[in-house]
Write a protein that binds this DNA or RNA. Structure first.
Lengths: 117, 117
DNA sequence: CGGTGACTTCGACATGAGTCGAGGTTGACA
DNA sequence: TGTCAACCTCGACTCATGTCGAAGTCACCG
């Protein structure tokens, strides 16, 4: 679980600009680790690119050969990393991406062009 | 190990724009997994932000409490993920970041602003 | 109220990953 | 040639993680 405090403490300076302090590294590494599995990466992309901004678990599950139980586990990992949010509506559960953290990770990996003198 | 072919096949469309195909997901997940450890994330940031663009292992090791063996292991993981490159010069080994993959990962995580009608 | 469908949680198992100490390799230097 | 320092590889251990089936919860619908 990543607390908002940890997440913002970890904030924005690009990796290539200054070393990450140890506490921030822990919080950020959790997010990267969550993306460090092919199935979770696909889940994440399916959720983030969903036309309505959200997608039903019942639309995710059939795209994989693994069991629904395992899908559910992976969604939990993404949820606990702060990358997605789930909401139950009627019988179904819908997930949507949380862009803040994605933006933060993207910024972290940003590489400046070679310094132009 | 990520081959150049895999890496470029995985290329550039942001996560939030279209779902990642399964083969690309495998290659990219490996890179994220490599960053998904606090120590490796700190190593990566120390290497990427090194003033001379490179840094000696002997300057990395004392920043941590774990053994040199383990540092070496983590560097290998980053190397095999295609995130860094190592080179032996005289008695020392120097590492430098490989910006291409970093840029690719950053682009993948990029989130567009909400579509302005 | 009971049944059914859509998840999630629980418990168990096999595999993977982080860690270390011991020992190998490479290069400098006397 | 021998020695020493820096780093890597190997083998072993422990703990974390991906996976599944079974059972639980929640909500709709007869």
């Amino acid at each position: 679980m990543v607390s908002p405090a940890e997440a913002s403490a970890a904030c924005c300076a690009p990796l290539a600009q200054q070393p990450i302090p140890a506490p921030a590294a822990g919080a950020l590494a959790q997010a990267f680790k969550a993306l460090g599995d092919p199935i979770r990466l696909q889940l994440m992309s399916m959720i983030a690119s969903a036309p309505d901004g959200e997608i039903c678990v019942c639309d995710l599950t059939p795209a994989f050969t693994i069991s629904g139980t395992t899908i559910s586990h992976h969604l939990k990992v993404l949820r606990e990393a702060g990358l997605i949010d789930g909401e139950r509506r009627a019988s179904w559960v819908y997930y949507r991406a949380r862009p803040e953290l994605m933006r933060q990770l993207s910024a972290l990996l940003a590489v400046g062009e070679p310094v132009p003198a």
